[in-house]
Simulated scan of single mutants.
Amino acid sequence: MKIDFRKATLADIAQMRELVRPEVESGVILERSEDEIATNIRSYTLAFHGDELVGFCALHIHTSYLAEVRSLIVKDGYRGQKIGEELIKKLLEEAKSLGLQKVLSLTYKQSFFERLGFVEIPKETLPEHKIWADCIKCKHFPICNEVSLIKNL
């Protein structure tokens, strides 16, 4: 199966929100408004099978040395085909090209990220602005079951 990857455009937003909606409703991924996605559109990398959007994720920069993987999603029926892995690899390449030193992930899929070289870190070591800017929006806050992992580049 041929999967094409490209950076997102504003025209992709509706399709992106539709793809991620089930994961948002279940509380696995934080909801991002249309405006929030538009503001951060340059952060997103998309995966397509033909004209069908089958996955995406974002590289969100926190500091001059630290970024975060956000909103990783692969459509049901396409999971297990290394699309998510390829999306993360593309984000890591982008992070390196920008001069970042570390990439963070908060996830329920610990083993997936560990296979890609991420290692678990205590949540207490996360930047404080991360907690107040994002985590407070989560329906699970303050009882967080996500694992924080980091990869040194």
Rank of each mutant, 00 (worst) to 15 (best):
T63N: 11
L30M: 06
A11C: 11
K75W: 02
L53K: 03
L10W: 10
K151S: 05
G27R: 05
S71V: 05
E128S: 13
D51M: 13
M16D: 09
K89E: 09
A58D: 03
E18V: 07
V20G: 03
L104Y: 01
L126N: 06
G84S: 08
Q101A: 10
M16A: 07
E124V: 14
P22C: 03
N152V: 10
N145W: 06
Y44R: 03
Y108A: 06
A133E: 13
K90P: 03
E85H: 06
S148T: 11
V74Y: 04
V28S: 10
S71T: 14
L126G: 10
E120D: 04
R21D: 15
Y78R: 04
K102C: 05
H49D: 10
G117M: 07
R6N: 05
C138V: 07
T63K: 06
Q110S: 05
K151L: 06
G77A: 11
Q81T: 08
N145Y: 13
K2C: 12
K139E: 12
F48T: 01
A38V: 07
E128C: 05
V24F: 05
C144D: 13
R42G: 08
K109R: 12
L53A: 02
A133W: 08
A95Q: 04
N152I: 09
K89V: 10
R42E: 10
I37H: 04
S148D: 06
V24C: 01
H49A: 14
I88N: 00
V147W: 01
T125P: 05
K151C: 05
H129E: 15
C135K: 07
Q15L: 12
G50K: 13
Q110K: 15
N40I: 00
L10D: 12
E68V: 05
G55P: 04
H49W: 10
M1H: 12
A11Y: 13
E128W: 07
Q81P: 06
L104K: 01
E120Y: 09
V119L: 14
L59G: 01
L126M: 14
S148E: 03
V69A: 02
L10G: 07
R115A: 08
Q81N: 12
N40H: 11
H140W: 13
N40A: 12
G77T: 08
R70S: 10
T107I: 02
E128V: 12
R70N: 11
P127E: 09
I136M: 14
A133K: 15
H129G: 09
E114K: 10
D35Y: 10
H129R: 13
V74Q: 00
I143C: 12
E23P: 03
K102A: 09
T45Y: 02
E86K: 09
A38W: 08
E23R: 11
E68K: 05
E93C: 11
F5E: 00
T107S: 04
C144S: 12
L59R: 02
I41A: 00
N145L: 09
G77L: 08
I3S: 12
I29D: 00
Q101K: 15
E34D: 06
Q81D: 07
G80S: 01
V69E: 07
I136R: 15
W132T: 15
E18M: 08
L72G: 00
I143S: 12
I131A: 09
I88V: 15
E114P: 00
K75T: 02
K151P: 02
L106A: 09
V20I: 15
T125W: 03
Q81G: 04
